[in-house]
Amino acid sequence: DKSDEAAQQLWEGVMPKWLHNMFSKVSNTITAANNVRAENGQPAFPYHWLELEFGDNALIAVKTGSDSSFPADGVDMVERVRDLMNAGALGQDIACVRIPSRASYEAQLAAAEQAQAEAVVAAEQGDSAGQVAEQAELASDTVEQAVDAADAAAEAQAEPADVAEPAFAMPELPAFDVDYGTWGIEYVDGTVREFDVAAGAFS
């Protein structure tokens, strides 16, 4: 509460620096641990949302990056939430300020998945063209080489390779830069409103 002198002094003197240090330490720990898991051939542990609780005030939930790291400007987002809440711009009885809103993030994810799918199709088409050229080259080989290749293929089919099961299944999400411009203001009665940060108003 900015109108509370003691609270304001505490915030200015302690909170931004403390939050910045905590964001950095926790984010670095998460990414370092997942890098070690990747080096060991293990899937990463996903951390989807960074949630901040300030006593009886509204929860602040910030979407992590594709590698589960915290956004570099996370503290600035918290400061902006505080300013807007103190100004009464976000309304009353707020349960959570979600950055970005669920709807905004889901739309961004869908767009990234679509782009990823299109890239896969393009790559497969490129592979198909390469396979046609390769088949044409194989056709010029001797009959003996063709027979040997068929025998090798039959032998490989008869002896399927063992496939190691992953430690646990995790859906592969496309990597993309999250747009934090649209917030979801979630109220205690369950309603949600979309807030455009750049405009400083509900959309």
Score class of each variant (00 low, 15 high):
I30L: 10
I99K: 00
D127C: 07
A33K: 14
L109M: 09
Y105L: 03
V132D: 07
D179C: 03
A139S: 11
G41T: 04
L84R: 08
S3P: 04
V75C: 10
F195I: 02
V26C: 14
I99F: 00
A110N: 10
R37W: 10
R37H: 15
Q8C: 08
S101N: 08
R98E: 01
C96I: 10
V197K: 10
S68V: 02
N34R: 11
Y105M: 00
M170L: 15
E106A: 10
E106Q: 06
K2A: 13
Q42F: 12
T64Q: 04
D177W: 08
A201V: 01
L173T: 09
A117C: 00
T64H: 02
Q92F: 11
G65Q: 14
T182R: 02
L90R: 07
D4H: 13
V192F: 11
A167M: 14
Q135W: 11
A123W: 09
I94R: 06
Q131K: 15
T31C: 04
H20E: 14
E134W: 06
L10P: 05
K63V: 04
S66N: 05
F168M: 04
V97E: 05
Q8Y: 15
L19D: 01
Q145Y: 10
V14G: 03
A156T: 07
A38I: 08
R193G: 01
A119Q: 08
W49D: 04
N86M: 02
L173Y: 11
H48A: 06
D148N: 13
A169I: 11
A158H: 12
T142C: 00
G126S: 11
A199S: 08
A158R: 12
D56N: 13
E106W: 09
L52N: 04
A110Q: 15
E5T: 09
Y180P: 05
K63S: 02
S27E: 00
I30H: 07
A139K: 03
A158K: 15
A7Y: 12
A6C: 06
A164C: 04
A133D: 04
E159M: 05
A146K: 15
C96S: 14
M77E: 06
L173V: 00
Q42C: 09
